[in-house]
Design a protein around this nucleic acid. Sequence first.
DNA 1: ATCATTTATATGCATAAGTCACATAAAGGC
DNA 2: GCCTTTATGTGACTTATGCATATAAATGAT
Lengths: 137, 137
Amino acid sequence: MCSGQDRDHEDRECCPQFAGRVRGFLQPWILLQLSRGSAHGYELLERLSEGEDVANADPGFLYRTLRGFEEEGLVRSSWDTAGSGPARRVYAITDLGREYLHAWAVHLRRTRDRLNRFLADYEALTTGEGGERDVRA
Amino acid sequence: MCSGQDRDHEDRECCPQFAGRVRGFLQPWILLQLSRGSAHGYELLERLSEGEDVANADPGFLYRTLRGFEEEGLVRSSWDTAGSGPARRVYAITDLGREYLHAWAVHLRRTRDRLNRFLADYEALTTGEGGERDVRA
DNA sequence: ATCATTTATATGCATAAGTCACATAAAGGC
DNA sequence: GCCTTTATGTGACTTATGCATATAAATGAT
């Protein structure tokens, strides 16, 4: 259990219990990337580790997710042997994938709203020091 | 797999694959509730099913989470035999619990920001119809 | 007094999700 | 040939979640 001394520390480094954090970003993120244009796994992996949009950059998880998407018909793949290095499996989003992305966005909008309500409640509690607002017990 | 015809439908009803949605709200929600005042599981369960802050209202999950929190020292419990009906196990948040809540809030703020970036990107894509912005492939 | 109902807490099991370590293999440089 | 980089994957394990069900105290009805 982390010390808790540094209240603003990056929790992923020392607090395994925060593994139980809000997750499930990778899937819609993939679909969003692919709806901008086709890409192969390794490329997505690089974008992942660069940006901070998504926490999870595990290759195994990414590749498995892509394969799963293909099984579900959200993406289609083909081999690209053109450039140098080993062949790349290039993924393209399908219409169904775009529909999923849309549905996911709808869901994520709700999630964000929940998040905002939660954070507002939390801040009201800490600002009002003691939490006099709507206390029922 | 859901039809995908009704693009704004409530996905939880018909799309099991959306079980893979953003989760992990219950834990901080519990801590927030308890930091407003002590409560027992059943009470929290009722608040859960009333509000729309958190999706998961499974009793088993809730009770297990509370027990887990107690093991970790985030909450403390005592039996309340006062009122009518069976005894209630009343939970109170500890200082450690409050620290966790704070750390969780920090994390959730980052999550909300990610979510906002994601949604902004998605909306830019659908508004700009075709996604000409920063396309690399 | 017994039986159904409500309140309340919990366990068991199956599956889903995520992590970690490692395996495979093509190309290019040396 | 051998090492490194690029690239795709598999296997095993742990944790998280969902769903069904068990238990039990009090209360009200008969």
